[in-house]
Design a protein around this nucleic acid. Sequence first.
RNA 1: GCCGACGUAGCUCAAUUGGCAGAGCAAUGCUCUUGUAAAGCAUAGGUUAUGGGUUCAAGUCCCAUCGUCGGCUCCA
Length: 609
Amino acid sequence: MATDDNIPYEESELYRIRHSAAHVMAEAVLTFFPEAKLAIGPPIAEGFYYDFDLGKDENGKPITFSEDDLNNIEKKMKQLLKKNASFDQSSKSIAEARDFFAAEPYKLELIAELAAGKVDENGNPSQEPASEVSIYQHREFVDLCRGPHVPYTKQVKANAVKILRTGGAYWRGDENRPQLQRIYGTAWHNKTELDAYLKRLEEAKARDHRRLGKELELFHLSALVGSGLPLWLPKGTILREELESFLRQAQVSRGYQPVITPHIGKIDLYITSGHYPYYKDSQYTPIDVDGEKFMLKPMNCPHHIEIYKSSPRSYRDLPLRLAEFGAVYRYEQSGELNGLTRVRGFTVDDSHLFVRPDQLHEEFIGVVELIQHVFETMGFTDFRARLGTNDPNSDKYAGDPKMWESGIEAIKQAAEQVGMAYSVEVGEAAFYGPKLDFIFRDVLQREWQLGTVQVDFLLPERFDLEYIGDDGERHRPVMIHRAPFGSMERFVGILIEHFNGAFPLWLAPVQAVVIPITDNHFDYAQQVANKLHAEGLRVHVDTGSERMNKKIRNAQLQKIPYMLVVGDQELEAEAVAVRTRNNENKGAMPVVDFAAMARNLVADKALDV
RNA sequence: GCCGACGUAGCUCAAUUGGCAGAGCAAUGCUCUUGUAAAGCAUAGGUUAUGGGUUCAAGUCCCAUCGUCGGCUCCA
């Protein structure tokens, strides 16, 4: 996010520019749609938006912005920016404001909540009831608004502003409220910054995992198989299995025990766990067999719990760490699906740790350290932690408040001990307990929730879990749910974009391609490949009829780490001419030397070749 | 699920106002035997997502379904 020096974004000039741009855009909209009702129009991370209610057409359908409308609005907006006007603040009493905004139902709702002390003028939560409201005006355009703005419209450069897109958006983000028409725009200090931003958007498009997944033959989405049910192609499978094997090893050395559970389970299992009512709307319909209902597994927890219950547990058995790459199925709404990052069938690198209360602290720290290890290995340096707590005002969260308190306390203590900063976000918890999420920011500054650790006192109670303590009495264990990757699908999707398809050697589906210069070198190329295979490397021989140059180009486009060119000279010297995908020509080296070098890079999980 | 846009060869895209479905890449065959990012020629490839409708005539217009994309909601 671009900020001026170290000032918080909210206090930066860019924020004022964008907020002002939003007002001028709304002014432009009103010139074409005088009847439009205004909702809210705040600055956001990389621009701004404004929501409008355009009313209904003669068929009762909501009026929406067309592409032409957007073009016209943008043109008008630029004119209005250049035609200078000052932004002037004033205040009105609640009664005056009600009067003034009498024709603006959305503003009236905000004023009512302002007066009740629920929100501020920008729609953000507030504490104190307001007696006056802040108003900003430029020319004829007046908005309920806390500001701040730039002093004059001219200070928003017309050539540094762009309208980006439109879309429906629910009023107050509530799908039960009317759907408004939102216009997104962006604004920057100057044209250079705008162009840089637009270029960044283009780059993001080029490294989109859906595009690269096709080009690099990693996965396929088939309409016939079903929406959100990805098929892993051979190369994508290598990538995924390398990740799984990396985590599996890391887990075995930390005392985890792999288990395997079925893809379906009786509905009673999920009713007992309490998952069923929470996830009912996002489930595949239960399968009815001989009068019994089975559900596609939406989560692995209850299955692992039944493993815990399969035999009496002693305090000596704990912690019991059960791990599974467990496939789960959730019937996400169609509009939510997206490539690999949002699917209906996915695999959670799931584990449930059954621990004694006195082990909770240490085990939680162990999980946090494992996640840190995973992120570090991937070269993910830019991430933050988020403590998700229950919202006392919501009925979404089960269990008694004491459980929640001790869970939250356990997470805070663990985070403190490992020196990890975190932000607290109310209402981000799982229904059964608080959690610490790891949110990774990729090279394009987008944030993704990946790893998660959750403390759960509830399910042990629901399933009546117990262990026999050293006092001979029955005690209740605590559960930790955790997934460092989050889901294999999402993680791979993010990894594709993070590395722009140029995976570290240990992950690259094809690590090297041998390129014979002429047909006469095919045999030698195959010998080289055989040797490297024997060394555990994934090598492919390009026996196509193209010229060497074309084969190099193809390998470059496939982002294969090494191109091993072999001709007469290499054949003679038992060597390969090594070229990297970074356009680096390392020259000839003996095959054994290349193998040793590559093996080391794989063993070290080096991030680049 | 809601709002909007879109769906033409394996991929990326063309196809005046409705008027003979086409190109590049990829694939296949042949020729060339090549030294670090695209050799040449040829061949094949399509019920224009699916199903209806309007029309002398539909890739193009209308309806429905499926799918994809951009948002909203939701979320690993």
